[in-house]
Design a protein around this nucleic acid. Structure first.
Lengths: 67, 67
DNA sequence: TATTTATGTTATATAATTCTAACAAGATGA
DNA sequence: TCATCTTGTTAGAATTATATAACATAAATA
């Protein structure tokens, strides 16, 4: 199961889904779905997002055994 | 552009594509395509592979601006 | 030599991500 | 109140990852 701290990072940076989406070249809805755990991103998207916040991928995304 | 050190890590661990594929639950061909840069993996696959080698995702996969 | 192992490669199918477009609603501020 | 911003949500299309099934070949090894 994918756990993401995306919303938390966005809040910390005072950044809207729309702004983040534009920065990484996807749609706002994609960010929203991601935050709500609707699907697992591509490595590229995860990479781009982590670069925006200047942290490692693992700091934002973690997989855990179910729950 | 995606650069991967997958083949290198496999060699270091003396592990075949087939074995790695089974460990992370994908097909051998998927590992092969990945090593040859045929496509970008899902975050889940990248995560699982990095766990096999006990390193961070970024140690195995890196995106660079073209080349 | 014969056989097994590892990898490359390709074509088609399936599943998942992402796009696109739309509507709704709460919060905020003029 | 009215307008704007932000997020939720949904349905269908488009794109991409991955599965599946073949066949080929080179290396290793019995």
């Amino acid at each position: 199961m994918l756990k993401t701290r995306l919303k938390e990072f966005r809040a910390k940076h005072n950044m809207s889904q729309e702004t983040l989406a534009r920065l990484v070249g996807v749609r706002r809805e994609t960010i929203g779905h991601l935050e709500r755990g609707n699907y697992n991103p591509s490595l590229k998207l995860a990479w781009d997002i982590s670069k925006v916040f200047n942290v490692s991928i693992e700091e934002i995304f973690q997989y855990t055994e179910e729950e």
